[in-house]
Design a binder for these strands. Structure first.
Lengths: 186, 186
DNA sequence: TATTGTTATACTCTATAACTATA
DNA sequence: TATAGTTATAGAGTATAACAATA
């Protein structure tokens, strides 16, 4: 398996200017255009991309995809009996089919193992192996200090406010989507 | 080209409970763990996923990927001369190689066309065709009203505060990343 | 030598359909 | 019939390297 070295991307703020310029133009042109909403969408996407690509790059150094990392994180709370595969899918918003692939990969690296559920022989329980637990514990300190470092420029107060607002946005969006889908929107 | 129908995913809030539970556990276990930062990361990722997957699904109904849509949006501000391909890449944080693919697709649908730059014969300028402009104008009203509808549950005040905080977070992260990369972090 | 765009390639992520084995 | 997991497949997104044409 070849592992090419990835180049980090600089944050060009040409982008910010372009977006603002485009918004100004469209806001006069489309009646449905709602500045605060569009601005929010752009900021959410752009900010997420910057953070996501940085973290993915760091995990890549351990040959871990973000999906695989998330699986390990979820399993770290299921020691003992293990977690049914379909439940992993629900927690990660990933389809059953794709969970199979992630677990296959992690099982090849001996980080997880599948066992059978005695009570329902259709389900397979997944749990961390000793090696998997050890591996996760070896990378988490660096991960957590990276997260802390990355967000250092903001006060805890701002972080809490931002978390709060993001949660509010998510709930609002989800209930709006539910409403639409009940009215026949696909 | 087969187009299977996609199922919308319900927002299960099992997820939220699991995350909080895991954070509580790790916060006692890892010294580097910083609750406000980790909470923020999780909220950012989860909220983005919900919104992104909804919008991607809607664009899919026009056989448009999010990337292709973004290209059209960028080009809508470059009428006249057109935009060099490498600049498209910078504005979308996408590599030159991948821009080629997006433009190929949009050119096949006759939404964009490539012309040559007289002043520098290495570069190719891309611009919307009449058909492309018409297409974009036909889908934007629904797009913008969807965005507005999606965020309806929040006040404009909250939206503005959220935008502001996201921008702050992005700038803080970017300068932190720049600092790390200057100190030899790859 | 450096840059623009292209081609080739590869891995991740997401999504669906069809299959099996259980319930 | 319905659910859990698997297999196969496909398209989107991202990334790198090597190349031709031009600067």
């Amino acid at each position: 398996m070849k592992k090419p070295v990835r180049k980090e991307k600089p944050g060009s703020d040409k982008r910010e200017h372009h977006y603002l310029n485009r918004m100004r133009h469209h806001s006069g042109k489309y009646e449905e255009f709602h500045w605060p909403s569009v601005e929010l969408l752009i900021n959410l996407a752009y900010t997420y991309e910057v953070i996501h690509s940085h973290l993915a790059r760091r995990l890549d150094e351990h040959n871990l995809s973000l999906g695989a990392f998330n699986v390990l994180m979820v399993l770290s709370r299921f020691e003992g009996d293990g977690c049914p595969m379909h439940e992993l899918g629900e927690l990660l918003l990933v389809s059953r089919a794709n969970v199979t692939g992630l677990i296959d990969y992690l099982a090849r690296r001996k980080f997880v193992e599948r066992t059978e559920d005695e009570r329902d022989r259709r389900v397979r329980l997944v749990r961390l192996t000793k090696a998997g637990k050890k591996f996760l514990e070896s990378i988490l300190p660096a991960h957590y200090s990276r997260v802390r470092e990355m967000f250092k420029g903001m006060s805890n107060r701002d972080k809490a406010a931002l978390s709060e607002l993001l949660m509010k946005l998510r709930h609002s969006t989800q209930s709006s989507l539910k409403r639409v889908s009940m009215n026949g929107g696909k």
